[in-house]
Design a protein around this nucleic acid. Structure first.
Lengths: 146, 146
DNA sequence: TTTATGTAGTTGCATAAACAACTATATGCC
DNA sequence: GGCATATAGTTGTTTATGCAACTACATAAA
């Protein structure tokens, strides 16, 4: 029966995700400083499209751990910004394929650099070994609950 | 120059906080199953008031890592639910002191149990040593960026 | 005492999340 | 073919977040 002895103070910060909130805010700030006017949530969608263009909204749900309405609206907003384009699939008419536009393609290199830089700011003073373990724990938590 | 070699796949999940999202969703679900109809965000405010009743909204901002408008509205909603009460401070008339009601007091034991239980679900298969390191890393990230 | 500056909290606006209910299309079984 | 069921996506509603602009009060300096 491990982990059954959480003190309140420890429990709270684990649940609230203050660290990831802090990372998101900092990344958003770094985007803004670089003149990039998209939200981190929008960026997270582009991120997966850069890895694989033309995936469906459902695939974006799975990749970003968001529900379908969230993705519908993120894609709505990205489409308004002319960063992605919905294309109805021919094979399966229920499905949309989402494609990156040229304008969004241009954002990839800079935003990925900014994300890397932000993560370095976040992990200042943390060893690679510690990061490895933290990643394993977070991955396991995700697996346990998803 | 440590930590400068993030691979994309590693980077993403660190930024998006999928683990803490998963924990929040599970805790929300566990609240609902127990018939408790408050949001995790509302609970996080109550949590700090249980530790110290009558603190100001600004103190709640600092404790919960939220901005002032967020706390204004969380307190608005908690007040509507009759779980807290705003009391204008006599010493400093700019300030509100926020007090737990009897109704909210009753939620403490059960919700803390549910939070503990949720965390145990989340950390199934993770050793205490690993959790310790993960907590240290997340704390350091928070300190680096706050 | 007046004025400047800082602090506590609120309001407006845009974006996003969670959940339920819905439409449209696909699939599998009789 | 026809019906049940599953899947992809959308819409409505409530709650929450982030930022900017604002009001009210407090404090400290001139």
């Amino acid at each position: 029966m491990p982990n059954n002895q959480f003190k309140k103070s420890e429990l709270y910060s684990f649940i609230t995700g203050k660290a990831s909130t802090a990372i998101s805010r900092r990344l958003q700030k770094n985007f803004k400083l670089a003149g990039i006017e998209i939200t981190i949530e929008q960026w997270s969608v582009l991120y997966h499209l850069w890895k694989e263009d033309g995936i469906s909204q459902q695939q974006l749900c799975d990749a970003t751990f968001r529900d379908k309405p969230s993705i519908t609206r993120l894609v709505d907003n990205l489409e308004k910004l002319k960063l992605v384009k919905r294309v109805a699939s021919k094979d399966d008419r229920r499905m949309n394929r989402i494609y990156i536009t040229a304008e969004a393609q241009e954002l990839q290199v800079l935003t990925m650099e900014l994300a890397n830089q932000t993560l370095n700011e976040a992990l200042e003073g943390v060893t690679n070994g510690q990061v490895e373990i933290a990643k394993e724990v977070l991955q396991q938590v995700y697996e346990n609950l998803k």
